[in-house]
Amino acid sequence: MSLIVAAFGFGLVSMSIIAISAVGFTMQFGITNMINLAYGQVMIASAYAAYAVNNAGVSIWLALPVGAVFGAVFSFLLNRLIYAPFQRKGTNLIGMVIISLAVSLVIANVMLPIVGYYSVSYHQNPGTTYHLGSIALTGAQLAIIAVAVVVMLAIYALLRFTRLGKAMRATAANPTLARNCGIPTARVVDLAWLITGALCGVAGTVAGMNSDSFSVASGSEFLIPIIAASILGGAGSPYGAMIGAVLIGEMTEISAAIISPEYKQVVAFAVLVLVMVLRPQGLLAKRGALAAAG
């Protein structure tokens, strides 16, 4: 029992990381109608950017913003240079998925010779361990949870209270109508890529902090819980992704304690299959995954 409670504690950290990344992933989809399968690779690239700074002797907490900025710029350029031109050309949804997968392959293999094949880990001081019953979390893990809470509140505030957030929601709902109402959708999409890219960068860096080590190959591992959480919550819905992250984070960690850590991803996948069979539109979204929506 105490094992499960302890796993619940790790689940809190997992869900924080998944929440940051899944909100970014799902917003990219919601606003630009594009499933960006290169997301996991951008996360890893950002984690390595933070690692470069961290390795030079800077604290990982100061390297975190570097990861965020790197992720933002990288995602922005990715959209401007590759995705947006293809979308303008009228490439269909399927074509865009193939393109993003090809991009993910290119990023991973351009990175390999640069960063090397071996796993690396951040130079960090995990801090003192805090106990609450059987839950034991390090200071760094608590800080990751705090970062996630702050990011979620910030996203909520952005979408709820700012003009930009309103413009983003309008663009997500109907880009043509939004443009006709005078919303500069091109700029909104640019900003959306910057913001979601920053989320991606933060997520990559904290994921690197929470795992003992990471390598280029971790990119596709990251992607599975993110996809599961986004689809569970309803693709395109940021709040859905948050709920999805909570469920997937806890389920994977608790199943790791009960069954075996190797099957963490399998549990995430099983949830994905159940959602696709029972409620393909996800918990919150009204349309999303169902056919003939877009």
């Binding site: 499933i35 399968l37 269909n92 949804l93 399927i94 865009m96 998925v97 193939i98 997968l101 596709s220 599975i224 996809i227 599961a228 689809i231 693709a235 075996s260 190797e262 099957y263 991803q265 399998v266 996948f269 994905l272 299959v273 696709m276 069979v277 393909p280 999303g288 995954a289 169902l290 056919a291 003939a292 929506a293 877009g294």
Partner: peptide, 29 residues
């Protein structure tokens, strides 16, 4: 039956991609 019935085409693609990753994980472990 899981993938092709109700899902949008790009969802079908990512569902099958994830399946491919998971299948390899299961066989390896």
């Amino acid at each position: 039956l899981v993938v092709l019935r109700r899902l949008r085409s790009d969802y079908q693609a990512i569902a099958m991609l994830v399946l491919s990753v998971i299948a390899s994980l299961v066989v390896t472990n």
